[in-house]
Design a binder for these strands. Structure first.
Length: 656
RNA sequence: GCGCCUGUAGCUCAGAUGGAUAGAGCGGCAGACUUCGAAUCUGUAGGCCGGGGGUUCGAAUCCCUCCAGGCGCGCCA
């Protein structure tokens, strides 16, 4: 709601400035005044105009306030402070329009042209997922949901590096440390007595210890990697078995958290289709890379990273002197494909069908009909941790060097900080820490050392705790229902916990904080939504045929207007106007690529609702007109909260 | 050495595009359940916004500088 009103005021502002002062102004910036009584939207533009016009800002503000009105949805404009213009919205009108929007009757945001591609998760398929991977997936998932909410076509891709060194390390472990054949590994995958992804977690750490003690083993690692890349022999067969089994585990883990994907992009298919060759040819053709003939990089194909005018040359090796391509080179090819700039494409096959009805596709080299069109994005967001910033910048530089300026500008590194463990938490998990580590504020997780908190272990622990809470509070006698609620609450707690921090801060994981269900947590939000629904359920018991969705037709403009009058009306409006800000908040979250903005908003809204809930008792309200108004308000808050929780991927249980 | 990020209440963090009296959760203290179930609400204490300069009508926010911490900078990924 707020967005539309801002745009309308903005248009009138530009006209007014032209008419009154003969100046061409841009779209103005709006603020929300610090106190609700001051108004709903404020404009500080008079201060800047004052400088240009050499006049008092307050006077200019008064002229603006008179000139901008009338605007639909705005009742009046006042001037405050040194020169703020504050707009007071037509409360009844805004509330009604919002009610219709939330009922899906109007205001569904239009589908926008172009596709936004979000790549997230992209875990090496060689061991179980850990808490850091969950942060990546939750951030990416919330961001994709935000895009969908605002009418963008979002496509979610999960990149599977099934031919990389991490898979090779586990394969080498099976082959040489455990002397297992591909068939035996396959049997292990099928064995219901072992968790294959956990088994590989331990094996990967074991392989690393082995390399440390036996550096000569590194030769075998190289051999294994090469065999996998060339799709030759036992190692390649085993890599296929390992990576596919682990990917399935990762998908199952993510599904527990309500995370789904559109497409799995497999590196093996990128190799098979010679994507890199096509990218390399173009890079050579346009002179983005050159072969070094002397110096330490002799024989390598390198790309210059210098801006014009820099003296010392900074180069990145793209192709090694032995002719093999580096990781960043492959990434350049993949990103060219994302934008449809490669001139090559995959074919696709279904990987699995989600219970939601959505089909997850995977890339293949052998053609198949009936797949949707993937790639060809106009905007790309790659959710990758902040330590890879340098490499992401290299990819952008490569696009620029090839003349793809627009793609370079539309490739966004969605960078986020890692999840560390507090030293106490690491020790609780049974890891021995050095004296130095114990002094640190957090310990970095390390797959190589096997140090980390596995995603499913954390989830299990949360579900157990939440289910116990449900049981002890007597919400349900049915064990199946108890565990269903427990699961929803656990997911709510975890998803909110991973969404509420801004991307750039390190999350120091601690059980006490993450396992909490009170205060600023997911369960608090769920509880608020349940409370709102309970009011309707209870009300319907004595009012047969009651539907919250019908309130919009039952309440008159006069009743709505009267409800927002006076001191109580001010408090009611505070809740309603906050609910009306969701679209503004979602746009801000997208512009800043910051899901936390939405999480914080959900909390503020829930807090505002709980405060209202406590102060006004609806079912015992004697005045039927006022009761209807209060029910209307609950419907607004409830629908908005539900919508926001949906963006956060958090479900609401029937009872709490 | 070069580059990027971070520094706000005891702890963990919000404060987009510079804007009105710097906020929240947890923890502390004091209160509120015969009600739409307290996984809740109310009140209270707690701040040289890392230090110092500058730009501006106005700076937690922009610029410079210093300090502290983290992360990058490989013919690894």
């Amino acid at each position: 709601m707020y967005l539309a009103i801002q745009e309308a005021i903005g248009r009138k502002y530009i006209e007014t400035v032209r008419g009154l002062f003969g100046l061409e102004a841009g779209a103005p910036a709006f603020d929300i005044p610090p106190h609700a009584e001051m108004g709903d939207l404020s404009l500080a533009a008079a201060f800047e105009l004052a400088k240009k016009l050499r006049r008092a800002p307050r006077q200019i503000a008064e002229e603006l306030a008179r000139g901008i009105l009338p605007v639909e949805g705005v009742r009046r404009a006042t001037v405050a402070g040194g020169g703020y213009v504050n707009f007071h919205l037509d409360r009844a009108r805004v509330a009604r329009a919002l009610f219709h929007e939330r009922s899906g009757l109007s205001g569904a945001s239009q589908l926008r042209p172009g596709k936004v591609l979000v790549e997230h998760t992209s875990i090496n398929p060689n061991k179980a997922a850990h808490i850091g991977h969950l942060r990546n997936a939750v951030l990416g998932d919330v961001f994709a949901r935000l895009l969908g909410f605002r009418g963008y076509q979002a496509e979610v891709q999960n990149y599977i590096d099934n031919t990389g060194v991490q898979v090779a390390d586990v394969v080498a472990g099976f082959l040489y440390l455990e002397q297992k054949s591909a068939a035996e590994v396959q049997a292990l995958v099928k064995d219901s007595g072992t968790r294959f992804d956990y088994y590989c977690w331990d094996l990967y750490a074991k392989v690393f210890r082995h390399y440390e003690e036996n550096p000569e083993g590194l030769a075998r690692r190289a051999e294994t990697l090469q065999a996998i890349e060339e799709n030759q022999g036992e190692a390649a067969r085993m890599a296929q078995i390992v990576s596919t089994a682990i990917v399935k585990k990762h998908l199952a883990t993510m599904l527990r958290l309500n995370i789904e994907y559109d497409l799995l992009v497999e590196e093996s298919e990128i190799l098979r289709l010679d994507f890199w060759k096509a990218a390399f040819e173009e890079m050579r053709r346009v002179g983005a890379v050159r072969q070094a003939t002397a110096g330490k990089n002799a024989g390598c194909w390198v790309m210059s990273l210098n801006e014009a005018g820099e003296e010392e040359e900074d180069v990145k090796i793209i192709v090694r002197s032995n002719g093999t391509v580096t990781y960043v080179g492959k990434d350049i090819a993949y990103h060219m494909w994302k934008f449809g700039l490669l001139g090559k494409d995959f074919t696709y096959a279904p990987f699995e069908r989600y219970a939601s009805g959505k089909t997850l596709w995977r890339t293949t080299a052998e053609g198949r009909d009936g797949a949707p069109s993937f790639g060809h994005a106009s905007q790309v967001y790659s959710v990758i941790d902040t330590r890879q910033t340098y490499l992401q910048n290299v990819v952008v530089a490569a696009l620029k060097a090839m003349g793809h300026e627009e793609a370079a500008a539309h490739l966004h590194h969605f960078a986020y900080e890692v999840v560390g463990l507090s030293p106490g938490c690491a020790e609780e998990l049974g890891f021995e820490l050095s004296a130095e580590d114990r002094e640190r504020s957090y310990v970095e997780v390390s797959g190589r050392k096997g140090l980390g908190l596995k995603a499913d272990d954390l989830m299990d622990r949360l579900v157990e705790k939440a289910t116990e809470e449900v049981r002890s509070r007597g919400m349900s006698d049915d064990p199946a229902e108890q565990s269903a609620y427990g699961r929803m609450i656990a997911v709510g707690a975890l998803r909110y916990f991973l969404s509420k921090f801004s991307r750039r801060v390190v999350i120091v994981f601690d059980f006490k904080e993450a396992l909490g269900f009170e205060g600023e947590t997911g369960p608090y939000l769920q509880y608020s939504a349940v409370r709102a629904r309970n009011i309707f359920r209870k009300y319907a018991e004595t009012h047969a045929g009651f539907e919250a969705g019908g309130l919009g037709d039952e309440i008159s403009d006069a009743e709505l207007g009267a409800g927002f009058e006076g001191e109580d009306g001010q408090a009611f409006w505070q809740l309603a106007s906050l609910a009306a800000q969701l679209d503004l908040v979602a746009e801000q979250a997208i512009a800043a690529a910051e899901p936390a903005v939405t999480a914080k908003y959900a909390f503020r809204l829930a807090q505002s609702f709980n405060n209202f809930y406590h102060r006004y008792h609806i079912l015992s309200e004697p005045d039927p007109g006022r009761q209807k108004f209060l029910l209307f308000l609950v419907a607004l808050a409830s629908a908005t909260l539900a919508q926001t929780l949906d963006i956060l991927g958090i479900e609401v249980p029937e009872r709490m």
